[in-house]
């Protein structure tokens, strides 16, 4: 049986999801020409507010009914969305995995592991990479791929989608910044763990540094690293916009920008809800993994 607390928690999450969906649709339901004018000393809106709510409610209800309808070009939105959703899902999941693996290893190598030398240098190593805008990373990647192509090395496709070669560069571009963030979290967590008594005891007992790192430090640090991931998710979603745009990758964010460009407000609203769903799905996933780790750690402790 689910406890009352759990039900309340689930209900609050559902409420947040509904609120997010409604507000997102509302933002897209405001017409570009909407403004206020002063007539006879009173503020009068140039577009009836109830019409905006009416439009918003209609989109919200059709979304709840899973009736996505057609976009302005007359294409069935569910079909267009599905293909793009899958492409973005591939891009996001691959880059998160890559970022996690790279980030954790880099974080371990960046950490002091009890050694207090080169503190400033380590800070610089972690700060400088996260300061590089994703635009620059994507532009450099693209220039690099063009440079390779000009020398008849066709490992990477510069733009588009369809083959694995098309996805390499977007995945790499998308995973670099999060990898550095994860490295930063990992390095801080590892450093914290090395101050803990159980690590000092293990070291005192003569455990090898490798054993201490993987069996004592990382086992405890990994939970905190996973808990830090939700902060990175929003960054990855924002970066997806840039990466998909610059690599002409026909994913969900490209679809959104295309629909914004043709002023298809209803479709844009629905797409943004789907983009937001990535955030909720990924966060839920991190929580599940974190809980699993917790349980497994507790079981071992018992």
């Amino acid at each position: 049986m689910l406890g009352q607390r759990t039900i309340r928690k689930i209900l609050s999450k559902v409420l947040v999801l509904f609120a997010f969906t409604y507000i997102s649709i509302f933002i897209f339901s405001i017409p570009y020409g909407y403004s206020w004018e002063i007539i006879d000393g009173r503020f009068v809106s140039t577009y009836p507010l109830y019409m905006i709510f009416k439009r918003c409610n209609s989109t919200f209800i059709s979304l709840l009914e899973l009736n996505l309808g057609y976009n302005i070009k007359g294409k069935a939105l569910n079909k267009v969305l599905f293909t793009s959703f899958m492409r973005t899902a591939l891009l996001l999941s691959s880059s998160i995995v890559l970022a996690f693996v790279l980030g954790v290893f880099k974080g371990i190598s960046d950490s002091n592991r009890g050694n207090k030398n080169n503190v400033f240098a380590k800070i610089l190593i972690s700060v400088i990479p996260i300061s590089i805008p994703d635009v620059l990373i994507a532009a450099i990647m693209q220039s690099f791929a063009i440079w390779l192509n000009q020398r008849d090395i066709h490992i990477f496709k510069v733009a588009g989608a369809g083959t694995l070669a098309h996805s390499f560069l977007p995945i790499i571009s998308l995973s670099i910044l999060p990898a550095f963030y994860i490295a930063r979290i990992t390095s801080l967590e590892v450093n914290d763990c090395y101050k803990k008594a159980y690590v000092l005891t293990a070291l005192g007992k003569g455990c090898s540094s490798k054993r201490v790192l993987w069996n004592h430090v990382m086992r405890n640090a990994i939970k905190s690293i996973i808990e830090g991931l939700p902060n990175i998710t929003s960054m990855i979603i924002s970066n997806t916009l840039i990466v998909e745009y610059m690599f002409s990758y026909p994913g969900l964010t490209t679809l959104l920008m295309d629909h914004i460009a043709i002023a298809d407000r209803r479709s844009s609203a629905i797409i943004i809800v789907f983009i937001g769903s990535f955030y909720f799905i990924l966060n839920g996933l991190y929580r599940c993994i974190s809980t699993l780790f917790n349980r497994s750690n507790r079981r071992e402790a018992v």
């Binding site: 947040v16 609120a19 929003s234 979603i237 964010t253 914004i260 983009i275 937001g276 990535f278």
Partner: peptide
């Protein structure tokens, strides 16, 4: 809620969409 809202709804999209609304320009 604000934190979740603009983590899931990319801030740059919100700015791009809202900055086009005549009210803010006026």
């Amino acid at each position: 809620f604000f934190n979740i809202m603009f983590s899931a709804f990319p801030l740059i999209i919100a700015v791009i969409v809202l900055s086009n609304i005549a009210l803010f320009q006026d």
